[in-house]
């Protein structure tokens, strides 16, 4: 550990500035142009007016007829002024929370079983969890169209939830298993020797120790669910729209880019808050364990 930590310093002290520049500059330049700049343009767009034919109205000078130009807080005022948008955000958080909880309940037995299997079987069992990922995301959603269709369950909130859980389940299984695998089995022996029941051994030993895995898995499920638009669109009804659908509609349907940009920014803040919370909880979980 100390060898790898001291290595970067010794490498740079030997004057390999050129190597550093050669390896850092190309990816940095590419990502500045195609990630950072577009993100900043989007932040700027959230303070502008939509163009008459969609896209953005010009920032300076007279726009086309009926177009307002310059900067505005209107997009934010519309968002806060009508409860429907806040409601959709709240609903998205609700669906993401339910999906995360369902994933946790389903992932736990699998992760625990793999962690408690003989070493030679573990890789195969993990592979079996990841393999469904080899199918396209839309194929996995489509599969539920076929299954739920005959039961008249399609285009409902339940269908959306099932689809969300199905698509994101491995994201919960993997971090959970990585955590559970590291548990020292002698802790459970000790608990048993001290008279703890099977349930107490799980609830008072295994579960608290697995909290960091639970939190990182939860972040990996919660965050993508927040931005998902295809699953509500394919499996849900019109009432099941989430933030992702709202953003997609603003860009491709109503072509109100400034409003879509503002919504994207709100989603970004929501994601950052969740990621921050998960990281904080995971640290606390480690500290307590």
């Amino acid at each position: 550990m100390s060898a790898t930590e001291s290595a970067p310093r010794s490498a740079s002290s030997q004057g390999s500035g050129l190597v550093r520049w050669l390896t850092s500059a190309p990816p940095l330049a590419f990502l500045t142009i195609f990630f950072l700049v577009p993100s900043l343009i989007m932040v700027g767009a959230s303070f502008r007016f939509p163009g008459e034919l969609g896209a953005l109205a010009p920032l300076f000078g007279p726009g086309a007829e009926g177009e307002e130009t310059g900067l505005t807080l209107e997009n934010y005022q519309v968002f806060l002024g009508d409860t429907i948008y806040v409601q959709i955000f709240v609903k998205s958080f609700g669906v993401a929370a339910l999906t995360t909880l369902a994933c946790l309940v389903m992932a736990y037995p699998v992760a625990l079983l793999i962690a408690r299997s003989p070493k030679r079987h573990r890789n195969l069992l993990v592979l079996l969890c990841v393999l469904p990922f080899a199918s396209n995301f839309l194929v996995r959603v489509y599969a539920w169209m076929i299954i739920l269709g005959p039961f008249d369950l399609l285009f409902s909130r339940l269908a959306v939830l099932v689809g969300m859980v199905y698509v994101h389940l491995p994201f919960m299984i993997l971090p959970l298993y990585t955590n559970l695998e590291k548990h020292d089995p002698t802790l459970l022996d000790a608990a048993q020797d001290l008279g703890a029941s099977a349930w107490n051994r799980f609830w008072r030993v295994t579960f608290p120790l697995s909290l960091p895995g639970i939190f990182s898995g939860s972040a990996l499920v919660f965050i993508p669910v927040l931005g998902m638009f295809a699953i509500p669109e394919i499996l849900g009804g019109k009432d099941d729209w989430l933030v992702g659908n709202l953003i997609k509609e603003s860009f491709l349907g109503t072509r109100d880019w400034p409003f879509g940009s503002m919504l994207s920014l709100m989603l970004t803040f929501a994601v950052l808050a969740i990621a921050g919370l998960a990281a904080w909880l995971a640290r606390r979980g480690v500290a307590r364990a």
Binding site: M228, G244, S261
Partner: peptide
């Protein structure tokens, strides 16, 4: 980040 964010920001860009 959710994929949609990169998607729409590149669309604008």
């Amino acid at each position: 980040m959710p994929e949609i964010l990169l998607g729409v920001s590149l669309l604008i860009f």
